[in-house]
Design a protein around this nucleic acid. Structure first.
Ligand SMILES: NC(=O)c1ccc[n+]([C@@H]2O[C@H](COP(=O)([O-])OP(=O)(O)OC[C@H]3O[C@@H](n4cnc5c(N)ncnc54)[C@H](O)[C@@H]3O)[C@@H](O)[C@H]2O)c1
Ligand SMILES: NC(=O)c1ccc[n+]([C@@H]2O[C@H](COP(=O)([O-])OP(=O)(O)OC[C@H]3O[C@@H](n4cnc5c(N)ncnc54)[C@H](O)[C@@H]3O)[C@@H](O)[C@H]2O)c1
Lengths: 209, 209
DNA sequence: GAATTATTGTGAAACGATTCACTTAAATAA
DNA sequence: TTATTTAAGTGAATCGTTTCACAATAATTC
């Protein structure tokens, strides 16, 4: 199966759109609706579905309930995913307070910080000491993590996470982390994304002078 | 010039690494060092440089100062970029408090929020009312913005920004925004990125059973 | 009930990005 | 001084993704 990475990201977006449409009472949706909603083309949408064996109805689009069920299956949205966040600073806390994750089946079950002032066992979710990281992951069989610590601590934190059983992380530290091959890392370099917008904006200006 | 988008992102990362290396007293760097630091290959690094006409010294790598100057030139890092953030909630405030942007020449000059409780004209940077958005952009000739409002407000906020003269935004709202062709939008869909990590982790597991 | 229309479905072509395979040249060794 | 080594530089091949072109078919119209 080719074309996977980008298609999977879009499938998750199609799913979100389906959920919103269902809430509005829609019963069927066309590939054009998906395209319009997420800024792509209907060809792209159908191709994505085609790759994963998802099919609709000629001239009648896709039945919302049916496609949602198929999509949940393909995207393995069977059970809740527990997530931990290491680093309870700006980013860590912002993610913690966001409740949109729940809809995607993601539950932030704990944060970890080495600064005792940031810790709070009673909070929901609790903010625990770094020393508890290994044990918590291990006991609760956590597989997903977020790294939101300064860049000079990121690798050492990741090493603990890997050892304890985490299988993939979203990383906000601006550094390339080292991990085994079967470990999945998604780097979110916000600073560079913003800098590049500045660059492309300047480029666009040049072109139209 | 082909291969641009991804290469530009990497060039910004090379630049960050150069700056850090310079601080450590390094005077020259090899393509292998760049590759190692940001998790790619030396071939990729040299190709990126080659595309933008950046050159080093056979068998002696790249002179830090020289390359940095060339890179600043290519990446148009000539002057400070002023940035505004709309939505002073979790994400908006997290970005506001981050001081790593300054190093990249990005300065957050104001936030905007329609909730009067969030507003504070005296803060640094100030959190202003939504009504001030148009005037502020216009008077201060701002070109870059961040959208950190709930998804149902994102398009209306963007429309004001475009009208007032913004040329590109980083968007955290999980929705595809409509904008003119010469406008640059960078979508950061954190929820979907995290969901996709869960998916790929599950896929990896299957493969090695 | 035949013709037309609207929409899905998909192999093949095109495009964009990465990697390969090789050339070049400076530094070091012999 | 010549040979060897090491790293940069790059056109061409490959790979992954998107787009095209057209087939299939269900719904609608005539
Ligand atoms: N905030 C942003 O907008 C932003 C933007 C771009 C990049 N980033 C990156 O994201 C990461 C987090 O940024 P932030 O603004 O949230 O930083 P922050 O300083 O607000 O938070 C970092 C937290 O990590 C904790 N910490 C430090 N070392 C630790 C360790 N070894 N184990 C556990 N906890 C530890 C600190 O006590 C602190 O609470 C950084 O790497 C930063 O470069 C942040
Ligand atoms: N926080 C996260 O971790 C996270 C994760 C994924 C996506 N997002 C997305 O990022 C966006 C911001 O998330 P957040 O958690 O910071 O939300 P938030 O609710 O904490 O903040 C949103 C802020 O925008 C303000 N606002 C609302 N309508 C406005 C308008 N029309 N003009 C100006 N300000 C307005 C609100 O008063 C609030 O202060 C949302 O679209 C959310 O879906 C956030």
């Amino acid at each position: 199966m080719i074309l996977v990475k980008q298609s999977v990201l879009r499938l998750f977006q199609y799913r979100d759109f389906l959920i919103r449409s269902k809430k509005l009472g829609k019963e069927s949706i066309f590939s054009d609706d998906f395209a319009e909603n997420l800024g792509t083309t209907s060809i792209q949408v159908r191709k994505d579905f085609s790759i994963f064996g998802l099919s609709g109805n000629k001239r009648a689009g896709y039945k919302v309930d049916e496609l949602l069920k198929q999509l949940n299956d393909v995207l393995k949205k069977d059970e809740k995913q527990k997530v931990i966040i290491v680093g309870a600073g700006n980013i860590g806390k912002a993610l913690m307070k966001y409740d949109g994750f729940r809809e995607g089946g993601l539950e932030i079950v704990a944060l970890f910080d080495n600064d005792s002032k940031a810790q709070n066992e009673k909070a929901k979710p609790p903010v625990l000491a770094l020393e508890q990281l290994y044990g918590f992951i291990n006991e609760n069989k956590i597989e997903l993590g977020v790294i939101a610590v300064p860049y000079h601590s990121a690798q050492q934190v990741l090493d603990i996470m890997i050892l304890a059983g985490i299988k993939g992380v979203m990383n906000f530290a601006p550094i390339a982390l080292k991990a085994p091959k079967n470990f999945y890392i998604n780097d979110m370099n916000l600073k560079i994304e913003l800098e590049s917008i500045a660059y492309f904006v300047k480029s666009l200006k040049k072109k139209r002078t």
